[in-house]
């Protein structure tokens, strides 16, 4: 057990990382060319997908290898609406994407999470992986959704008739959505609901004896994560201009798992860092060694996952800060009433 000292609870690093990243991301388009603007926009969108996985695994202990399923189905739904019905307004498509992710994740939740018996981690992992796999295969064979080729040349998203073009406009748009959802999750995970999630992560069996219906909590978290993955999938489809079966499948699902493990589980910001770092490494490695770079990347991931289970963020953030504080003595609430006032000498 790590010793708890007064200082460990006070030295908080995550808000600094969040602040620095936000400023960096706000200023970045002023300093780099279009290639990097597109590159980072993609990282924002996949960052949403990483948040979605971190929420289920890092906060609720659900090992989902199916986050791409919600991402992909949402992307396909939006793409079909845009190409077959001519709908391009983001005010319609983004809610549709969210709803698609929500509905599909609820369906999967009923199959693998909300059963009568408490499912094992392996069962959930295999169940979600299978879902992802099956739907990718379906999409590959279904000509209405373009089969192997998917749906190419999507029109641009519009807002009140103005096109949201890839580049700085899409960049700030994606950043705004990422920041909003990030703040929402930050609030959620630090609420009393978040305390229940912390309890589930630490001692799931014990929590049920307090009267918590753990399955319901997991179901709700899984659905919220599905909704976020859906939004991510919708944004991705229009940023790239196409949807394809690969966006539904186990490869992307697994990639998201790696993003979050690499950056750091259960911190929210770790997923964003993971996406940025892995994509950057991949890019530079592929410049240096055109064919063999995935080997180097794989080894790098393996080293981090094996030797630093808390991910890159684990170098900066203590376990205490990661788990957090929820009650009256939470750092956010501390200034309201100093806990030291309650300090009485004990014999």
């Amino acid at each position: 057990m790590p010793p708890a000292t007064a200082s460990t609870s006070k030295r908080r690093v995550i808000p600094w990382i969040e602040g620095i990243l936000l400023v960096l991301f706000l200023l970045l388009p002023l300093a780099v060319d279009d290639f990097w603007v597109l590159f980072v926009t993609r990282a924002f969108i996949l960052g949403l997908l990483a948040l979605s996985f971190d929420l289920v695994w890092g906060y609720a202990g659900i090992l989902s290898f199916g986050q791409a399923l919600f991402f992909g189905v949402a992307g396909y739904c939006c793409a079909l609406l845009a190409t077959k019905a001519g709908i391009t307004s983001i005010l319609v498509l983004l809610p549709v994407a969210a709803l698609a992710g929500l509905v599909v994740s609820l369906m999967l939740a009923f199959l693998v999470i909300l059963g009568k018996r408490v499912p094992t981690t392996v069962f959930v992992a295999l169940g979600t992986l299978t879902g992802s796999y099956v739907v990718e295969r379906l999409a590959r064979g279904w000509s209405y959704v373009g089969g192997q080729n998917g749906i190419p040349s999507l029109p641009r998203l519009t807002l009140f008739g103005h096109e949201i073009a890839e580049g700085p406009v899409y960049y700030y748009f994606a950043l705004a959505i990422l920041a909003l959802i990030y703040l929402g999750l930050r609030w959620l995970t630090r609420s009393q609901f978040g305390l229940v999630l912390a309890g589930i992560r630490e001692q799931e069996a014990r929590i049920t004896f307090f009267g918590y219906h753990v399955q319901n909590y997991k179901g709700v978290v899984f659905a919220i994560a599905g909704l976020i993955a859906g939004i991510s999938g919708g944004l991705y489809a229009f940023h790239e201009g196409y949807v394809g079966p690969g966006q539904l499948g186990p490869v992307l699902s697994t990639q998201v798992v790696l993003y979050v493990l690499f950056g750091g589980v259960g911190t929210l910001i770790g997923g964003i860092i993971g996406v940025s770092m892995i994509d950057l490494f991949s890019y530079y490695l592929s410049q240096i060694w055109e064919t063999g770079w995935p080997i180097v990347l794989g080894l790098l991931l393996l080293i981090v996952v094996m030797f630093k289970p808390t991910g890159l963020i684990g170098f900066l953030v203590t376990a205490r800060e990661r788990v957090g504080s929820f009650g009256r003595f939470a750092p956010e609430l501390k200034d309201a009433k100093k806990p030291q006032a309650a300090a009485t000498e004990t014999p």
Binding site: A198, E202, Q203, G211, S325, F326, R328, F329
Partner: peptide, 19 residues
Amino acid sequence: SILPMLSVYDNVLLAVQAQ
């Protein structure tokens, strides 16, 4: 079976807020 990574206060909060 307390929750060692949570504060003393949060352990009790977790128990009482279950209602």
